[in-house]
Write a protein that binds this DNA or RNA. Structure first.
Lengths: 334, 334
DNA sequence: GGATTTACCGTAAACGTTTTCGTCAGTGTT
DNA sequence: AACACTGACGAAAACGTTTACGGTAAATCC
């Protein structure tokens, strides 16, 4: 389409090598020819072809990012952070929406491989043997976000879920609550499910509160499941003064159901969420929650990936700090 | 890194041409050699190099998408739709976060050009002369989403904002409201600002209701600005029974402020939003709003772009249907 | 003033594909 | 037996860069 380096060379009466040199400002030409070349480039509106560059440099200045769902509040925040750093450091990002579908994920990995991306960020899902094998075969840096693996040696960035859940529960206990329900994430989820349950149970145990089966219910992290879980809790008839939801979306669902049942939050019931998504601030009343620094996690992951790409040396995994954001859904019990 | 087509050719004792032919299943080889080649490919774990392919085919199977903010509820939904179709039709998508910054946008356009993307989707922002020039120079298909331009001939997909705003206002009027405030989007925004204001004013006029300056306030589409706008409206002391907010985020802000002031929604005040984002469903009470089919708009835009890429013929712009989603923030006035 | 360095620049190979063109053996036709 | 045709394949050019290597002239050195 546009003019190539050859066209520039011809018009500037130099060789393509010289044009390439001034383009990548390497030494080997006089100031005069530099001026000349630059002028011709501007005149012709020449743009280098990154594809041709990539072919020879074996670097595409592109990274791939895999999300279970790009449109979730969670993913899009992380993506934002990744994109921010990637752009700052002259890389583009290809987004992949896996739908938590193994076939789809494998397809994406293959495509990213064929497109010769320089690195991959893999988020929120458990790293299966299959994924690991192809990732390994690609022989490029990989960073895990909001997930991790003991078996496979990829660096990760995440918060300490168990610890954070412990904190949330402890926070409720210190407010004076002893009948604390939990709405968990997906049953069997080893990444964002089980650890938060463990944190909850451990806090209860440390404060001498027995775990009660019927104050515990599974959800799937989504809003609807939060509504359903809250209803189930209410139907069981077991009394409780607080609920810890393993995601803000589920917490919001609980809030809605409480409202529908005429239960005043926080006066009659305290609710604490998890994630600190945008909705936490926007709910009525604003949601107290444990914050994951998602934007920063995205940024950090991208930084780690890029330094691995540039230096080739493996970086250390990072545990990000969580914190409790006190808004208006938690109060002392009556 | 991995084996190349030459390695495969050598091991299968055929020429690279033959390997290429079976890869792209074109005719010109016996069933036996096909089997042989396929087997060697599997054995060696050969993957074609999309970069090399792109260089010769002048097709990268990649499209670029520009958003003002990838993490907004709005953008991420559109992105999801785009990604869905792109993947279905064997294309990857590079996301760009412009921050509504001209310099940044230009940089992105340049990069996308250098990376030889096959097409571009440009969303939510006004298409300046500068952008148009470089887009034009790239000589690739471009689709506009949630924006449009009379001066420049790119096909777009959007809803009819003026019409939708008219509907929202009319809906309020038909419920019996006559004192209807509006929280507008950004002042001077020709795309999502002015048309919605016009729709609002026109509906008022058609139903014989005078426009009142102090029942009108500008926001910037965001949650905080919705809060601020609502406060301002309340401070002015002018009575109103309903408010039309030009975005769900602002509507949610208005809802929060109403709650803080002890104003019951919808009993004492009706609120209608715009967009039908996920939060509309999740707010307390759930927000009545005019829906834009964002996911479908993303899908359609991608479909249009891809058929332009594949066929080379310009497609028609599309106005998407909006609809009013009745939830629980609008009631008849007392 | 010859030898050596240096600055500047060009030639051509290489990156991994696709595709045009040609070759060659085999088959069928007359 | 001469001919055209077909199917199966290979050789090589091409895509737009980067870079190793070499060359030439001017500058520097002893």
């Amino acid at each position: 389409m546009g003019p190539t380096i050859k066209d520039v060379a011809k018009k500037a009466k130099v060789s393509v090598a010289t044009v390439s040199r001034v383009l990548n400002n390497q030494p080997g030409y006089s100031e005069k020819t530099k001026k000349k070349v630059l002028q011709v480039i501007k005149e012709m509106g020449y743009q280098p072809n990154a594809i041709a560059r990539g072919l020879i440099n074996k670097r595409t200045q592109t990274i791939g990012v895999l999300f279970p769902s790009v449109s979730s509040l969670f993913s899009s925040k992380v993506l934002h952070g990744i994109e921010h750093i990637a752009h700052e450091r002259d890389h583009s990002v290809i987004v992949c929406n896996t739908d938590t579908d193994g076939k789809r994920t494998m397809k994406y990995l293959q495509v990213l491989g064929e497109k010769q991306v320089d690195g991959i960020i893999f988020t929120s899902e458990v790293l299966t043997e299959d994924y690991y094998r192809v990732l390994k075969a690609m022989n490029i840096p990989v960073i895990l976000v909001s997930t991790f693996s003991l078996r496979y040696p990829f660096p990760y960035v995440k918060v300490d879920d168990k610890h954070a859940a412990y904190h949330a529960t402890e926070y409720l206990i210190k407010q004076g609550h002893r009948k604390i329900a939990m709405i968990s994430g997906t049953e069997g989820d080893e990444i964002a499910g089980t650890p938060r349950i463990e944190g909850y149970r451990e806090a209860l145990r440390d404060y001498g509160i027995p775990f009660q089966e019927n104050l515990f219910v599974f959800g799937d992290f989504g809003y609807r499941s939060g509504c359903a879980a809250m209803k189930k809790l209410l139907e069981r008839g077991e009394e409780f003064t607080a609920v810890f939801a393993a995601s803000d979306e589920m917490a919001t669902g609980a809030l809605s159901v409480a409202y529908q049942h005429g239960i005043k939050v926080p006066d009659q019931l305290s609710i604490i969420g998890y994630d600190n998504l945008q909705i936490a601030e926007m709910s009525v009343p604003p949601l107290t929650t444990v914050a994951q620094p998602l934007f920063e996690m995205g940024k950090l992951a991208a930084e780690m990936l890029l330094t691995m790409i540039e230096t080739g040396v493996t970086v250390e995994s990072r545990i990000m700090p969580h914190s409790i954001i006190e808004r208006q859904t938690v109060a002392k019990p009556l």
